[in-house]
Design a protein around this nucleic acid. Structure first.
Lengths: 344, 344
DNA sequence: GGATGTGCTGTTAGCGGTAACATAGCCCGG
DNA sequence: CCGGGCTATGTTACCGCTAACAGCACATCC
């Protein structure tokens, strides 16, 4: 027994069904449904009513093939679970909302191979544009994107050559700035705690900038600790304990993201360690979560919302302009010292 | 000046281009690219080489239209930013990975109207199946889904009638169980702290079950506090302070999610309140984040990963089976007492 | 030797829409 | 009363690919 009601909608509906039900040509129905071209008010209503009664849902596959237009924007990001990309998505959606464009996300889990295949899949749907996180891609992926003939925006990072357009911050500079602030505050025995993912290029660039700035002041990392997987908050705690046990005279902990930084902060507070007096702490991203912690962790916001917005604007704009040249937009994150860096 | 290399890829490539480049018919190229039907090893290689050289990316729009098959599964969820749905997505992706099916997410922000339009958009791409969070939808949305002629799986919740299949837990029961555990532990003056979103039906059902269980023991909520927006961790803190100030003799705080529960826990610890002696706490979801907290918050996991997996399995299975009837799978969350409920 | 595969490739006819171009009715001015 | 310019609708030819079938060469079997 099927669960369908009285009449049988076995075959999926097409324009023809609506056209027959309303006594006009398929073309007229198409026009009504897309609000394009002139249709008399009378027929418009007749058609809409017929469509509604039948429960007709247009077939975008056919429409897209015929019109050579697809109102989709591919968004390729490494992960959904770290609070940073959802916010980028929010920015993108906000802007795309009233452009008729729709974002479609693909997740790569920081794997270049997976990214390549996600990009391939997406391009095979012939989207109107692509937004891809990062500047590092396989050669094949880069080639596909370059040849696609649609606007491409690489986001988050601008430390490197872009395929077309790019919107992001300089992670290298961000790392440097943080190091400078830490040194200025008088810390000298500085440790780094971060992810082990070889493909988190942005974390890597921050660390590089950070170390360069240390070197400029004649310093080098006193210790470093890496992790992968698991609860970032817990890992932050554990790593912090490991570093402070191994190296009790370390006076600053620089975390590659806020989540492990928060874990570290909670650990220090629980141990009664004087923060920021004896040990200073800093993370990266400016995630909302920090607002709820007992003490404000120093961080640097990554302009995530703004990056999403700008990227979407480029896609939406280019579609109308037909502009060819790529533009690179650099955003500047602000250092939020919070309460975990000594003032002075 | 265009940024294209030597030859000009102005027109996007089609099967014909590959067919001409390799000297076989379009059909043969199509067969090679899809690994379907017999093609001699010699031609297969010739075709693949030509395709690779040209940088050909198949047009799935055309393919889908011709074959009447779309390897997409629509996933409609209320939000990406609360850590619960990303995990569901993980489960879905895991299972879909090797079925040739691909998930496409749509986000509704807990708005029924937005959900309706997201569903409409998705159905217009004629996906192979749909996974939709929750059982509550507009009449129109429900009708569209029912008529679509594809497997529909409603997830997260099973307290109500499903359109087709459903995978989830009983939030009503979950609320009840938590109340029973709390009462059994000897708490009597119990407050609820949660979201204000009228469309978070699952939180609502948990509260309902919770109150019913209280009533059965002759109890009723001593206080309640609602919020919306902002950092959940911070809100949890603030709400907890508000409740405990207004009502100093409250001895248990039941939170509608782990994030505000975590905020509350941090607040209580900072205030030196005896947890779970003077005040007990419990949240809901079993998010990973809790692992990193100074004390383990009592919670109930919502089986998110498992829900995603099962839902995807139903979609993947039905496609091959052609089974019609809908199945309802109830999962049973386990109560994790943590350290914030007195041990009786 | 003719029937019967079997392995490979090509041909034809759409899939369900839409762009572009008719066409038909109507109003208008001269 | 005719040409011209509407507005409202219909016709035709695809969009790029694939299902289904057809064809052909060669091997196999009685």
């Amino acid at each position: 027994m099927t669960k369908s009601p009285g009449f049988d909608p076995r075959r999926t509906l097409t324009l023809r069904d609506v056209s027959e039900a309303s006594g006009v040509s398929e073309m007229t129905v198409s026009r009504v449904l897309r609000n394009r071209g002139d249709v008399s008010e009378a027929t418009r209503e007749r058609v809409l009513e017929a469509a509604r009664n039948l429960g007709y849902v247009p077939n975008k596959i056919a429409g897209a093939l015929a019109s050579q237009r697809v109102n989709l924007v591919g968004v390729v990001i490494p992960s959904l679970s770290n609070m940073v990309f959802p916010e980028v998505m929010t920015g993108i959606s906000e802007v795309l909302e009233d452009t008729g464009l729709q974002p479609v996300v693909g997740v790569t889990n920081y794997s270049p191979e997976r990214e390549e295949s996600v990009i391939y899949e997406m391009l095979s749907w012939r989207p109107s544009g692509m937004i891809v996180a990062g500047l590092e891609h396989t050669d094949a992926a880069r080639a596909m994107l370059a040849q696609a003939g649609i606007p491409i925006v690489e986001i988050m990072d601008i430390d490197g050559p872009a395929i077309d357009s790019a919107v992001g911050i300089s992670h290298h500079r961000a790392g440097r700035q943080m190091a400078e602030a830490i040194i200025a505050a008088g810390y000298r025995r500085i440790a780094f705690l971060g992810t082990m993912m070889p493909h988190d290029h942005r974390a890597r660039k921050r660390l590089k900038g950070f170390e360069e700035a240390l070197a400029k002041s004649g310093l080098h990392l006193a210790d470093r600790e890496f992790y992968s997987g698991g609860s970032a908050l817990l890992k932050g705690r554990e790593m912090t304990e490991a570093v402070l046990t191994r190296n009790p005279d370390v006076d600053f902990l620089y975390y590659s993201n806020d989540m492990i930084g928060a874990g570290g902060l909670l650990y220090c507070l629980a141990q009664g360690i004087d923060v920021p007096g004896k040990v200073g702490l800093a993370g990266f991203n400016g995630v909302e979560l920090l607002d709820g912690l007992p003490r404000r962790l120093a961080t640097m916001d990554a302009c995530r919302l703004e990056i999403g917005r700008r990227a979407a604007e480029i896609i939406a704009g280019k579609r109308t302009d037909g502009v060819v040249g790529g533009e690179v937009i650099e955003l500047f994150p602000t250092l939020q010292p919070g309460d975990t860096i000594r003032q002075g």
